[in-house]
Design a protein around this nucleic acid. Sequence first.
DNA 1: TTGGTCACTTACCATATGGTAGACAGATCT
DNA 2: AGATCTGTCTACCATATGGTAAGTGACCAA
Lengths: 206, 206
Amino acid sequence: MPTSNGVADETSTPARILDAALASFATRGYEATSLDALAAGLEVRKQTILYWFPSKEVLLDAVIDRSAIELSEALEGSLATAGTGWVRVEAVVRSVFRLAARQPELLGLVREMGRLGAPAATRFVAALEPLVSRASEFLEAEMDSGHMRRHEPRLLLLAIYSTVIGMLTEVELLRALGEEPTARSLVRRRAEILDLLRSALVTSTA
Amino acid sequence: MPTSNGVADETSTPARILDAALASFATRGYEATSLDALAAGLEVRKQTILYWFPSKEVLLDAVIDRSAIELSEALEGSLATAGTGWVRVEAVVRSVFRLAARQPELLGLVREMGRLGAPAATRFVAALEPLVSRASEFLEAEMDSGHMRRHEPRLLLLAIYSTVIGMLTEVELLRALGEEPTARSLVRRRAEILDLLRSALVTSTA
DNA sequence: TTGGTCACTTACCATATGGTAGACAGATCT
DNA sequence: AGATCTGTCTACCATATGGTAAGTGACCAA
């Protein structure tokens, strides 16, 4: 049986397995990822993977858990920013884009989650539930106090989420639209999203 | 060799295969769909599928082609609506929601396309290219004539697309947010999207 | 009647997949 | 030194997968 704290070390085998699995799940997808291919990329036998994670599904769960934590930590900070409603929304969107530049696999996994069946998706959503609740409550409070145009808070959240994820993960569509995955393009996409959201949310012109 | 016009008839074997494949590709995903499972659902031997579509990839291409045509036909009509800029945008969004109620698999496939590798996604995007160009040009013209707030047309298109698709296909997230997939919920989601888009696009208050 | 085509079936097959059993080297403990 | 534990490897396996080869009965034209 594997030691429980083996995952902590960044360079340990289980940590490397998690990294590779996250990357492959995010790009190729869960079903399209084979343990053999994963092991080959790590220069390790497949059975080593199964030693640390007794099944492919357990591996997925581990990836989900770790990613949800990283995602929460990255966003909760910016969600706690000071300032009026719009400033805070902008801070969160900016931090998502920063995250996408630093760890694109994380966003890819988020997208993949929406596709996987109930067990995995539910686990992921459950892990992010506190973040979602806080964001939803924040939006509602800001609308109550008149800082933002009135919308259904949870649906607004879904709309923001979908747009941001779309702008960051729809690589084929972006290519078809002439947007290559460069840093410059990322900045343009961020500006566009912020522009759209501001005009949809802000009540009075600054 | 199969006869080329076998697909035309709605109840023919190839047409039924296409229907089942579309449904499974849209919900389970392409890789997670096995020809055996597909055949079992149709009460047909797997080899019958391979008789009409010589490989799984060819079957996917056929599904893509047929779906792209249906999608184009459904949207081109509403895109040709008369009226000012916003009215036409609203008409298109409404027709997408109508389509989602009638043929939810079609929207599911669209979502799946963004996930599949270059060959499939490219084929799909290419088939929809005329529609995308026309929509993009329309948006640009409306912005030039001052009917709409200025945005990057292609990125705006992607934003609208992402939001609509998200509202219609993010079933797990919607459930977590308390939105069950009922007809009533669909109406609320549509209202929310239209509200968001209107405030983001329309220049003068009506 | 016969020859051929069409739609589909039964019988196989090579490969890849997730997963199991057990051996083995090195470190750690007694 | 001997026993135990840890991490990895070699060897194997049952199953599922996409795909091939060779039929079979129905229909149809000559």
